[in-house]
Write a protein that binds this DNA or RNA. Sequence first.
DNA 1: CGATCAATTGATAGAGGTCAAGACGCGTGG
DNA 2: CCACGCGTCTTGACCTCTATCAATTGATCG
Lengths: 248, 248
Amino acid sequence: MASPKHESHSCSHCSLSDICLPLGIDKEDLDRLEKLVQGSHIQHDGDVVIQQGTPFTKIFAVKSGMYKSTKLNADGHETIIGFHLPGELIGLDAIYPMEYTSSTTALTTSALCQLDYDQLTDLSAHIPALQKQLIRLISKEINNSNALLSELSAEQKLASFIRNLAIRYETRGYSGTELILAMTRQDIANHLGMAAETVSRLLKRFQDKGVLKINHREVKILNPEQLLILTGCEAQTHSIDTSKLRKG
Amino acid sequence: MASPKHESHSCSHCSLSDICLPLGIDKEDLDRLEKLVQGSHIQHDGDVVIQQGTPFTKIFAVKSGMYKSTKLNADGHETIIGFHLPGELIGLDAIYPMEYTSSTTALTTSALCQLDYDQLTDLSAHIPALQKQLIRLISKEINNSNALLSELSAEQKLASFIRNLAIRYETRGYSGTELILAMTRQDIANHLGMAAETVSRLLKRFQDKGVLKINHREVKILNPEQLLILTGCEAQTHSIDTSKLRKG
DNA sequence: CGATCAATTGATAGAGGTCAAGACGCGTGG
DNA sequence: CCACGCGTCTTGACCTCTATCAATTGATCG
């Protein structure tokens, strides 16, 4: 299992083709795209896929499992800037600086595709639809990054985090109510800018409230609406007293 | 001064051409690019340029002054996702969702250019250099957004904010040591996720330490190296005791 | 079955939010 | 020119949230 195996691949048969690159591309163009895709590379827990600071050459697409990207700051502190689920692209933030700005590691047994960026841009110059899709996906990343800016309390941040994971899983055809936290509590805490103990306590609180059912890394969302409220977003079902929304 | 005046414009003569779009484009292509640029629109303090939720049609480039982008979240809370200085582009995050995800407002008397996005992509399909530059600039935004994730204490966040502003001004040919905070303390606080009182207290502390000289909205950086240390990044001049870097 | 790592739980303290009052700057109108 | 009002900024007192430290339990694995 440990050997990096290059499976036969085909974007057209990939279950992720709807959310990955080949949106609205005809058969002929798709063939050309597939030529530059290097198929499934398999990693295991802890395997490093990208080293921060190395020259940018490829974009990665997650096929299965989960990855995390950590950034070593100038102050020597490591921050987890994100987790990557199947169908998501890794490395788009490296285009501008021409080198990877964070390291990426597998959290469980996982697989990804590799796309040579130079070939991809060359091809996209000939296929407007591909160019547009590429730009759209990069733009999407900006929004993802901005999402973390708003939250206030630790409770809201963690609730948002879980909800965000659930939604992303659901979008990709997995269950939107039962998910597995492939990362440690410490990883979650780091990503959200809090202590691991706080994550632990909050998860317990969520469970006590009947919002979640937690069994180690397994999370079951019992009350999605209540979870939404915990994010700081009021429920839409009944009218709200807006007089005391959090600060101005 | 108050009338929105469409000045004669020319990217080739614009002092910002180095940092804006037209990087490495030849004369002929530049002419075509200029055709789709709508020249200087002038705003004043409080003028709204972009309304969150409206359809995405244009990218904006700041010519002078300063703008802020605020996002109204589902919880009814407004977050300032960024400030825009001359030479910077606004609206790149709207490409994916096809609508503006935040509202943009002028903070002082300011001016910007408008670029029709559809025309821009059509043109970039014919000019590989333009396409690359466009993609690079969008990618850059991801990095900007990720920058806020790492900081820990309020002191580090504010020090980083000031330093970031100074560096951006310096890159654009302005002074890197004397700058004007066109935004209110409340705006800074909102953007950094803290209380306005904390900003006030921290600025005072920075001044007491001799790092900054503050006169209302004017900031003079007296000790850039000390400011760097306040961001959490150790000074490079002498070897450091790394034994007690902030948490793991 | 110890050893190791992840996770939980409790006790404590400090950073920073909140509330409240006052100072300062600035435009407006008498 | 000064008084007034308004918004911004500052400063102080208090208190909550959450980080930190520490000890324990639970899982996993060679």
